[in-house]
Amino acid sequence: MNDTLKEAFGQIRAEQALKETTLSYLQQKTQGYRHAPAASYYRPLLSLAACLILVVCLCLWRAWFTLVSVISIAINPSLELDLNRFDRVISVEGYNEDGQALANSLSIQYLNYQDALEAILNSETVADCLARQELLSIAVVDDDAQRQQALLAGVQSCAAGHGQSHCYAADTTALEDAHHAGLSYGKYQAYLELLALDPDITPQQVQTMTIREIRQLIDDLTDSNPNPQEESSGTSGQGVGPSGQENGQGEGHHYGQEGGHHYGRS
């Protein structure tokens, strides 16, 4: 068997054409045996470039999917748009059933926030609410004051001509509190005002109410409340929530046609 195997393997030989092809290849690759193939020099550079491209892609990916700002919209559908640093919507979250239904019905992911906002305001659900004179509350949350003001200006320009709207800047801590209570930021601010007047009110009760209904309840309780000091002093003129963030930012609040709330068409 040893001889058989040896004899059989011995039949396999390199073809002359294969040897000649290999010699030609070596001649060409080494430019007549003078230079090593160029590929051996730039291959490490190519690898480095590939690594750099990968790192850049990872950074871009991270930047694209990092939440930077939030636009919180409350009318009756309550929903929030999470924005990246490129002002694109990276996720939409509904904070009540109507909000979830609206979020599911719209294709606004990765749109610019203004386009997304237009789509929401022009949606049948929101348009119906606005037609019923419901109050639209839009809060802009961003840790960077400059970005926040720019976003607020953009939001205000979108909201203009869409009924009674209230656009204002808010802070991250208050937003977290709102999420903890299961409410959008706008509704949470209204809830806090209501809570000051009616300590028995719960976030669950507020969740299904429209902003106008909450406001109406606040007005009713304010009218029947003999001690006006209990009302948050910040709501007067500024319509501010307990965080106090909005004071002094000068963005203005359009709530209230009477008393301390300046609701009105913006």
């Binding site: 396999i12 030989r13 073809e15 294969l18 290999t22 010699l23 001649q27 007549g32 045996y33």
Partner: peptide
């Protein structure tokens, strides 16, 4: 880098071995 002669010798000497592998 090795010379053309060395390359030719190696091919003559080891091409059958490489071919079988």
């Amino acid at each position: 880098m090795r010379s053309e002669e060395e390359a030719r010798r190696a091919i003559e000497q080891y091409s059958d071995l490489v071919r079988r592998l």
